[in-house]
Design a protein around this nucleic acid. Structure first.
Length: 489
RNA sequence: GGGGCGUUCGUCUAGCGGCCCAGGACACCGCCCUCUCAAGGCGGAGAUCAGGGGUUCAAAUCCCCUACGCCCUACCA
């Protein structure tokens, strides 16, 4: 009988949640939901030096924003807790002791060498610092001399010197390493904390994790984990190494490639459902033609045999396109709601607060014209306040002169002042006739009005817009345009 | 230096021996629609399937070699 699927996302609180980490979380979550299993969040805070306060909260916020819920972990607890490794130190300590007793690990008395302290030669040759360690073969006499009665807290795992370690990766297939190429890595640090390797193996076992799905960069450390399992008598979990996400230059995605933190995408006006859909496509595909796909459909079809092996470049352009697709699927009410925080953030004081009913009328006019919520304020500002500064010279359309422009404005002003029916069909009917009478093309006449009403040469279709703006705003804006244009010489 | 993984249009990908002188999507170009801008529709350009050897009647698909890229090689994860 197959075990229950239990997968985990194991972030370390060392900085802002990176898009690559989030994608890993997403794939784990999709896998769990597909199999009706459990998705667990476990905090790997074993590096006290690099701990960044607030990063776990940011990570959890990111998951919540994307609607990725976890069954066990921070805030929700669970039967396998605690879910912070810093609260599980005794477990690792005991395990390390057991390994030493069994002869699978040994205390190390070498002085600590940071990468930056490596000699030039070492950096050039890229020789592992651990290769120099001779503590494995220390005699009891040498140990007591080195330890000065104080046993070192640093413990290294004693890698078998011969043999092969194999893994059958669910995405990559069979992979194997000659044990002689593997070094004696550290499992307990001098501060009493375990390294990732020990903690991850211990907790994956204790939390009964069935599948370890993580980024490909972890593949090289898999034989260490397998050997650790072997020494501890654990049956290892299944492994699946996901392709990595790269920047446009094919290097590991980093800050200089643009936004990498999940929070930035939220602030930049992306819809969580669009980001999710986009991330899913980075390494997974439903078929040969589907791009826009609901999370529900992905869950139903999410299998590892459809996960790509090669790394993917994060294409901001396609993400933007997808965001536009999702924006267009929103109802007017939903879009208005999503835009509101951005308007409150970016609109000037005097345009706030935003009237929701009015905004819901505006929203449909912009829906297919924005690709990101970030554009909200810029594209709607004239609905809230007239631009009285625009260059009146732009009122004059191609093939027109000052006089024809001025008379066009006056004619429209007469028409619009005289009617109270601002339904777009009526307005179009009326102004069409007036335009013809003035012998202006629709492009010319409507262009003048567009500019007078918005101060811009680009806007949603004129009549839909005029209906939403309403008589008061329109009449006053055209009057203003006439005045300013007349005054200008 | 060592170890490992990867390689299909610029990018994301479909493809798991014949349906492929390779399909879809983004971006790009053109046309249509049209009051501007979009959206949408239609069409185009774009991949000697990294290169070379095999296996096979038949290979993008299987095997081997090479090249290139990436990852790991910390008392970081």
């Amino acid at each position: 009988m197959p075990r229950e699927v239990r997968v985990r996302f194991a972030p370390s609180p060392t900085g802002l949640p990176h898009i690559g980490n989030i994608r890993t979380a997403l794939f784990n979550w999709l896998f769990a939901r597909h199999h009706g299993g459990k998705f667990i969040v476990r905090v790997e805070d074993t590096d006290q030096a690099r701990l960044v306060p607030g990063s776990i909260e940011a990570m959890l916020d990111g998951l919540r924003w994307l609607n990725i819920d976890w069954d066990e972990g921070p805030e929700v607890g669970g039967p396998y807790g605690p879910y912070y490794q810093s609260e599980r130190l005794q477990i690792y300590h005991d395990l390390a002791g057991k390994l030493v007793t069994q002869g699978n690990a040994y205390h190390c008395y070498c002085s600590q060498k940071l990468p930056s302290q490596d000699s030039q030669e070492q950096r050039d040759r890229r020789v592992s610092a651990s290769a120099d360690c001779k503590c494995r073969d220390l005699t009891p006499g040498e140990i007591s001399k080195l330890s000065k009665g104080q046993e070192s807290k640093v413990v290294r795992f004693a890698m078998p010197k011969e043999g092969i370690t194999r893994v059958n990766d669910l995405i990559r297939g069979a992979v194997e390493w000659r044990n002689e190429t593997l070094n004696d890595f550290i499992i307990m640090k001098s501060d009493g904390f375990p390294t990732y390797h020990l903690a991850v193996v211990a907790d994956d076992k204790l939390m009964e994790i069935s599948h370890v799905m993580r980024a490909e960069e972890w593949l090289p450390s898999t034989p260490r984990h397998l050997q650790l399992c072997e020494a501890l008598g654990y049956e290892p979990p299944k492994y699946a190494h996901l392709p990595m996400i790269m920047g446009s230059d094919r290097a590991k995605l980093s800050k200089r490639h643009g936004a990498t933190a999940i929070g930035e995408y939220k602030d930049n006006g992306f819809l969580p459902e669009a980001l999710t859909n986009f991330m899913v496509l980075l390494g997974w595909a439903l078929d040969d033609k589907t791009d826009v796909v609901s999370t529900q459909t992905v869950i139903e079809n999410f299998t590892l045999d459809r996960v790509t092996k090669s790394s993917a470049i994060f294409d901001q352009e396609k993400l933007l396109w997808m965001n536009g697709m999702y924006i267009r699927e929103l109802t007017a009410e939903q879009l208005a709601g999503r835009m509101t925080p951005f308007l409150e953030r970016d609109l000037s004081e005097d345009m706030l607060p935003v009237d929701q009913e009015y905004l819901q009328q505006i929203a449909p006019l912009l829906q297919e014209r924005i690709k990101s919520l970030e554009e909200s304020a810029n594209i709607t500002s004239y609905f809230f306040k007239a631009d009285e500064e625009f260059d009146t010279g732009t009122l004059v359309q191609k093939g027109m002169d000052r006089d024809s422009t001025l008379s066009a404005l006056k004619a429209a002003l007469d028409d619009l002042s005289a009617t109270d029916d601002f339904h777009q069909e009526k307005l179009e009917e009326m102004l069409n006739a007036t335009g013809e009478r003035l012998e202006l093309s629709r492009r010319q006449f409507f262009g003048v009005l567009r500019t007078a009403a918005t101060g811009r040469s680009v806007s949603p279709p004129l009549f839909e817009m005029l209906e939403v703006l309403g008589k008061d705003r329109i009449v006053s804006r055209i009057k203003n345009a006439v005045d300013r244009f007349s005054a200008a010489s």
